[in-house]
């Protein structure tokens, strides 16, 4: 039992001596960062025994309002970092331990915990360009808006998701950004105005193109023609003519329509959505055809009555 007590006392004494000779090597939990290496033998430079690591200790060397302007040994513009300077001026928490730690290794980066934008003052947090102005690319795309958050997220800047909704109507000109993307096919070469792009393409996804010919005209067995039969290569595909076929002669078409009392027959596809001449999409046209067909029927009926009358005679 006596040896046990002696051993206890001697061990405590030896441990105390080790600590007294070199507190750093006796109890240090990890290597200090390079800038604090000279404080190795002065634990109390940062630590208040029993009360942690108060920020006041940090500010003894890192003067408040000048953090980011230079290092603690030589306050000046030698190591000036404007972003750091602004950052430290706008922090929500003034406790240095919120972002900084130590005994994590020699590298300076080891002394900083993961930065999150929530540490910033909310007004600054919303104004990305307050810190990131120099990183803003100098492209047309980035000139459309100052609201970086419309496309970017703070957690991962690179994962930008562009949305056309940030553009004003005046800015929504496809060719301004997509001119080099425009296919060089004969079909696309004839499309010269911006409305042409929107006819077939969506801003949410360029492909697949949503052009549906049946919206304008339904092909049938009589109309399996090439594009050039109805469309002119020089005038573009928004213009067409039905007179490209031998079936459709201008004089014949005009006569037929006037018989039906249809005066406006320049835009054939407005009424004739397919080759079936009895099917039309235009109500006005339908009603006219109905009146005319009623007239025809009455005409036929009266004609038959006359015939009967004459036969009776």
């Amino acid at each position: 039992m006596r040896s046990t007590h002696i051993t206890l006392f001697m061990s405590l004494l030896i441990a105390g001596i080790i600590f007294w000779i070199s507190p750093y090597y006796a109890i240090n939990p990890g290597t200090l960062s390079g800038g604090h290496e000279k404080l190795k033998s002065e634990c109390s430079a940062c630590h208040s025994p029993g009360s942690g690591i108060p920020s006041e200790k940090c500010l003894t060397c890192h003067r408040e309002g000048e953090i980011g302007k230079g290092n603690s040994a030589d306050v000046g513009i030698k190591n000036s970092n404007q972003k750091n300077f602004l950052l430290h001026k706008t922090l929500v928490s003034e406790d240095c331990k919120t972002c900084h730690t130590e005994h994590n290794g020699f590298g300076r980066e080891n002394a900083t915990l993961n930065f999150t934008h929530t540490m910033l003052n909310p007004d600054i947090n919303r104004n990305c360009q307050a810190c990131h102005l120099q990183e803003k690319p100098n492209t047309d795309m980035h000139s459309y808006s100052d609201k970086c958050g419309l496309c970017h997220i703070q957690e991962d800047w690179q994962k930008a998701k562009f949305s056309h909704s940030i553009l004003t109507d005046a800015q929504l000109i496809c060719r301004t950004c997509h001119n080099k993307d425009a296919p060089q096919s004969d079909f696309h070469k004839t499309l010269v105005n911006e409305q042409s792009c929107a006819e077939c393409h969506q801003t949410s996804a360029w492909t697949p193109a949503t052009f549906n010919h049946e919206k304008h005209f339904v092909f049938d067995s009589n109309h399996q023609s090439k594009c050039s039969t109805c469309h002119s290569m020089t005038d573009g595909y928004t213009k067409y003519t039905c007179f490209g076929c031998h079936e459709h002669q201008p004089e014949k078409i005009a006569r037929k329509h006037k018989e039906e009392n249809i005066q406006n027959f320049e835009n054939c596809a407005k009424c004739h959505r397919s080759g079936d001449e009895d099917s039309t999409f235009n109500e006005n046209s339908n009603s006219k055809r109905k009146k005319n067909s009623e007239k025809k029927e009455k005409h036929h009926e009266s004609g038959e009555r006359e015939k009967e009358h004459h036969e009776d005679d």
């Binding site: 441990a15 080790i18 600590f19 090597y25 006796a26 109890i27 240090n28 939990p29 990890g30 290597t31």
Partner: peptide
């Protein structure tokens, strides 16, 4: 497996 301080 850290070799930082003597006492621990």
């Amino acid at each position: 497996i850290h070799f930082n301080a003597i006492i621990p």
